[in-house]
Nucleic acid binder design. Sequence first.
RNA 1: GCCGGCGUAGCUCAGUGGUAGAGCAGCGCACUCGUAAUGCGCAGGCCGUCGGUUCAAAUCCGACCGUCGGCUCCA
Length: 635
Amino acid sequence: MINITLKDGSVRRYEPGTSLLEIAFDISPRLAKDALVARVNGKLVDLNHRLDEDAKVEFLTFDSEEGRDVFRHSTAHVMAQAVQRLFPGTKLAIGPAIANGFYYDFDSPQRFNPEQLEAIEVEMNKIIKEDLPFARVELSREEALNKFRERGEHYKVELINDLPEDAVISCYQQGEFEDLCAGPHVPSTGRLKAVKLLNVAGAYWRGDERNKMLQRIYGTAFPKKSLLDEHLHRLEEARRRDHRKLGAELDLFSIQEEGPGFPFFHPKGMIIRNELEKFWREEHKRRGYDEIRTPVILSRALWEQSGHWDHYRENMYFTKIDDADFAIKPMNCPGSILIYKSRLHSYRDLPIRMAELGLVHRHELSGVLHGLMRVRCFTQDDAHIFMLPEQVKDEIVGVIDLVNDFYRVFGFDYHVELSTRPEKAMGSEEIWEMATNALREAMEERGLPYKVNEGDGAFYGPKIDFHLEDCIGRTWQCGTIQLDFLMPEKFDLTYVGEDGQKYRPVMIHRVVFGSIERFIGILTEHFAGAFPTWLAPVQVKVLPITDRQLDYAREVTGILAERDIRVELDARNEKVNYKIREAQGQKIPYMLVLGDREAAAGTVAVRHRRKGDLGAVELERFIENLQREISSKEC
RNA sequence: GCCGGCGUAGCUCAGUGGUAGAGCAGCGCACUCGUAAUGCGCAGGCCGUCGGUUCAAAUCCGACCGUCGGCUCCA
């Protein structure tokens, strides 16, 4: 007999050779039905696996991340099977589970479009009905290579060749279909219930644009139809929060054919921008930053000196003035550096923190443009900190705290990534090593958890990135801190030390919002357009019930405007219901309904966009509360 | 840039080879109304652009532009 220790610590005894599925059934038939995969001594294993020795076993269902991934990975296999049934000769690349579903990359002469997706979905449902067991087969490298070579599955052959020497090579079979796969999988195709194929997209083999473009089909899967419907409904809801849709509805900004990737800010969008900038200026002044502004067009020679010409040219726009070559700035740093160099600096002056709301232009590929999130011109809330080497860590910690304080005001969750030396980098390995360690130490001092992206740094230095989420869970880089030992070298920056000698300062590039445009996009989706009152383009809408109250309504509107409250009067000859509906649609925080009673008593009937009717109060009282809410930046 | 989808009125969409349609928004008139849509009327379109097929093109074909979802890149 073997001893099986379960998650709760209890021990059960079974014959050697008992399968995990049998054990699950023995514990409860319900568990056998819900379990998708098991963790045996810390490793994920198929439920069809038989145990010969004592083991610690945990059964995983769709409620766990691992369970979901296995479920969806198995669904990807079924999709591949369906595709090969319908379109013989289709070659398979890779097909993993992803955050909310799965994909599989195919190489096929057949162009997949929505019509084919439907057919594939129908075939997948057939395979699920057939309830084919997933069988694991382990085989030698030779056997595996021969098998996939024979079938012409050259992507699989490439994958096998890249597996480490000691890897166990396994295949999974369901019915006539077989795929190279480490597993594990659900016991049989019948476990997969509700499947939906979502879209097709091109994707390069191994993500490298020099390789062939494959067709990637995305889908999602759930163990119950109701869960699938719920998920699709959530996606639908999320689209309602899309900043591009809300931007048009709330009249914040537009993007026109005449300027692809170059957003137009409308009056209401400008109010949000200006409020953000006001907040930004206050906070930066408090923290010892000086504000500067540098030109948008600067000589090409400057960009050659900075290294942008060599490393960033394909993203830049160029122009000519009187036969001399100029570039439109893609970054603000060279401008800042010129200001630093305009006079001599003492070690006593450092750190110098020069902040700039700088408009930069970058040539982004047409296919990546996305509302305000990815554009071709944007305003970075940039700053360059010039400092002594021994000030580096404190300055980085200072920026980390600044970013955290900012994001907290908006109630954002974020995650942090550290990017290290890229292939196309300037400077020696040692300098990079030093810079990267400084960033690490600062994050560790603040106990900030982070993920490492090897090779993702800027060409002049490693960086810490702060990522925020949009309405459908895509993450966007906003804040970033980049350490730079190289620009000071290239531009021969110096300060005079205690001993009268010249020394080299260190430089930090950093942004907090990242790009004001992207940040407004994120804000819009985060609040679903219902901006906190301090940011709301219109804070109060005055709604007289009939034109008898127009004079009083004008008076109230005037008083509010005088007190610096952004107020609009809806003087149209419409029913109050209609006016409320419209103001709600515009997500205006407060509506003041004014009828004969209010006009007589000198009060206002307050309606809040979320809390509804709050009853009548003295106008002065309302203003006090509103001003308190605005100045505290309440969310 | 690459792969696939889409492009008709300000917005949302119908129209698949034979004289361009609806709802909402806009404008006019009436209603004077108490917390999410009052009624009637009027106007509004080189059917993304250019070229081709056809007696005839919003509709079929091609190119380009824009846009959406990805890939790649990045704030």
